[in-house]
C-alpha cells in the first residue's frame, strides 16, 4: 500500500464502515426481530401483510438499507476472518472476487424481492 500514494486507505475505511454499519444494524436487526416475531407472529405472515408494510416508503427504504448494510457487514466480516487466517496472493484475490460477486447478487436479488413484495 505504501507504493501507491492514495488518499483512500482501504484499511481504515473498511474498518470504519464495519463499525458504522454495525451501529445501524444493532438497531434495525432488533427492530426487525421484534416486528416480525412479536408484533406480527412469524407464522401469521402473509403476502398482503408484507405488502402493506412495504408500501410505507420509510419502511421500504429502511429494509433496503438493512439489506445493503447487512450484506456489507457480513461479507466484509468473512473477508476479515480470511485475512486473519493469513490468506494471501491468488487465494486472497479469489476470495475478494467470490465474496464481492456473492454480495452483489444478494443485494440485487434482495431488491427484486423488496420491489415484488411492495408491488411497485
Amino acid at each position: 500500500m505504501a507504493e501507491r500514494y492514495s488518499s483512500f486507505r482501504s484499511g481504515s475505511t473498511a474498518w470504519l464502515l464495519q463499525r458504522i454499519t454495525a451501529a445501524f444494524l444493532v438497531v434495525v436487526l432488533a427492530f426487525h426481530f421484534f416486528n416480525l416475531h412479536f408484533v406480527t407472529h412469524a407464522a401469521d405472515i402473509e403476502f398482503a401483510g408484507s405488502q402493506a408494510r412495504m408500501q410505507n416508503v420509510g419502511y421500504f427504504v429502511t429494509m433496503v438499507l438493512f439489506l445493503v448494510t447487512a450484506t456489507f457487514h457480513g461479507v466484509n466480516g468473512i473477508y476479515n476472518a480470511l485475512v486473519n487466517q493469513g490468506i494471501e496472493g491468488n487465494a486472497k484475490r479469489a476470495a475478494q472476487v467470490v465474496l464481492g460477486v456473492a454480495g452483489l447478487l444478494l443485494v440485487v436479488q434482495g431488491i427484486r424481492v423488496a420491489i415484488a413484495l411492495a408491488g411497485f
Partner: peptide, 14 residues
C-alpha cells in the same frame, strides 16, 4: 502511521 495502518497493521487486532 502508514506502517501501522497497512492491512497487516492495527486493523488485524480483534
Amino acid at each position: 502511521l502508514e506502517i501501522i495502518e497497512q492491512e497487516h497493521g492495527v486493523w488485524r487486532c480483534q
